[in-house]
Design a protein around this nucleic acid. Structure first.
Length: 219
DNA sequence: GCGACAG
DNA sequence: ATCTTGTCGC
């Protein structure tokens, strides 16, 4: 499934440079996502659990979920985060009953040194529209206003790569960037819609809870 | 050369 | 990511 999987950081960087041009910032024709999947991974030593939870965007009800166990192959290296989580997340995605319309990822999309963070990598590999939602920025930004929905640009090397988006009043913003096949306005609107009550989107919250629980039960 | 650097 | 106490609020 995953050809030429890198064994070293140098190979991983080379793969990102080859794949970054494959990111398509244009949404599919008539894009109107009905479901969104949250993806997250939890760790315990060399074990991990990857979870995907699919929500109906309108009702925020869970319509499908999968969690799979795995092992950590790749060390955590800033900029190469995807190589740690991608294999397990793809395995979980394959086991879903239905294909989600949109992927909400825990990390950067194009707000990344090589414009190819986890969300972009997942989007390109699956062909699905994807959004990167990170808790910490990779780039520079000025603090947005205090209200829910307030935002400022996230920049890197002179490029606008995403937004610092406040999802709750006076709560630290999230850092949203496009992953693949979506535009930044739509990405931010979807994140806001999915986060009516807490800082993080419901998709991410449920996937987080699910993989943590699985890690404990599998032990 | 030194610091910064998603989870 | 994970480690952690008490504390505030619904």
């Amino acid at each position: 499934m995953i050809e030429d999987w890198p064994a070293t950081p140098d190979e991983a960087v080379a793969l990102q440079l080859r794949m970054a041009p494959l990111v398509d910032p244009r949404p599919p024709a008539g894009f109107a996502p009905r479901t969104a999947a949250g993806l997250d991974v939890a760790y315990d030593e060399d074990r991990l659990a990857a979870a995907v939870v699919v929500l109906d965007i309108a009702s925020l009800e869970t319509v499908d979920q999968v969690v799979v166990p795995g092992v950590t192959d790749f060390p955590y290296v800033p900029g190469l985060f995807a190589f740690r989580e991608l294999p397990a997340l793809l395995g979980a995605l394959e086991r879903l009953t239905t294909s989600p319309d949109l992927l909400i990822c825990d990390g950067q999309g194009v707000a990344h040194p090589r414009r190819f963070g986890l969300a972009s990598h997942l989007g390109v590999v699956t062909g699905l529209p994807s959004i990167g939602v990170a808790k910490t920025p990779m780039g520079h930004y000025d603090p947005p206003g205090p209200e829910r929905g307030d935002w400022t640009e996230l920049t890197d090397g002179g490029d606008v790569v995403g937004r610092a988006l406040r999802t709750q009043r006076e709560i630290k913003p999230l850092f949203v960037s496009i992953g693949h096949r979506i535009d930044l306005d739509t990405a931010c609107a979807q994140v806001l819609r999915l986060a009516p009550k807490y800082r993080q989107p419901e998709t991410t919250r449920r996937a987080d809870h699910l993989c943590r629980e699985a890690l404990v039960l599998d032990r």
